[in-house]
Amino acid sequence: MQERLQALKEEALSEIQQASSMKEVQDIKVKFLGKKGPITEISKGMGKLSKEERPKMGQLVNEIRTAISDQLEEKIARLEKAAVEERLKEETIDVSLPGRPVKRGNHHPLTRVIEEIEDLFLGMGFSIAEGPEVETDYYNFEALNLPKDHPARDMQDSFYITEETLLRTHTSPMQARTMEKLNGEGPVKIIVPGKVYRRDTDDATHSHQFMQIEGLMVGENVRMSDLKGVLQSFAKKMFGEEREIRLRPSFFPFTEPSVEMDISCFNCGGNGCSVCKGTGWIEILGGGMVHPNVLRMSGFDPEKVTGFAFGMGPERIAMLKYGIDDIRHFYTNDSRFIKQFNSL
């Protein structure tokens, strides 16, 4: 009987070892340890043994049963592990394949520049005023100290619709429109972004339609040094902390004194290069102290308040900032052009 058990054990262990699937393992389990299996048979026949032999044989049966089922468990664990490994192997992907593109558009570069400038001035307490693109002669010229026969009107040949209305040549008309509403009560702090129009033939550097951002600050004690300070913050934010600015005297009918602002060249740092035409400086915008006639016409008392105003061209700023060589790119909207302005 003992030999029989030993033989069974060896047979079982050998079969377990050879088994290669879960099913085989289950079959072995049933075959040896099942209710109708040989070991159960032997257990059943133990009643015929003597009292002395019975516990010894019982122990042996148990030992063999345990040995087989341990082996079975171990085999099952091993097979399961192999199965998992097999699955993982099958599921392996080429991580170098391209990801699924995310469908997203982006701002036009002009909007990008304008919003950046808007945010900068919002942070300095300015709000954003917007006005009509078709203006009256009064707001576009007269209220800005440009009476009908003023020679400076030649500076910006305009598109008239009637004798009294035209496409605005700058966003400055909002100076008067904003101030008029305030009945002489300041402070006024606005910037005015928007489209403007001039009689120019479109080429690489001219466009009959372009953007402008006008700025206006009026209040008690507004000084030209404040203009310089505000523009310095602007220049450093837009073109880098190392930028210096300089103001040069200039002329605009609506400011007195008038200035033009240059920034130190961001390309060469001021040593002279092709971007700054060898001067080390790049002209960015015009401005000045609001002309007393402009204040007076819009209901403010130039004896009590002063103000500064400035105007800049987002196209020019974008062209300088991004190195764009042709102003027409902004208006032809080549998708390869627009798509370049998609990152921070």
Partner: peptide, 20 residues
């Protein structure tokens, strides 16, 4: 010389800057 004009920040009363 405008180079000799200092760069200052406005001393007028402050205003909140916000979009409409």
């Amino acid at each position: 010389g405008y180079d000799n004009v200092p760069a200052t920040l406005p001393v007028t009363e402050s205003t909140p800057g916000q979009l409409s």
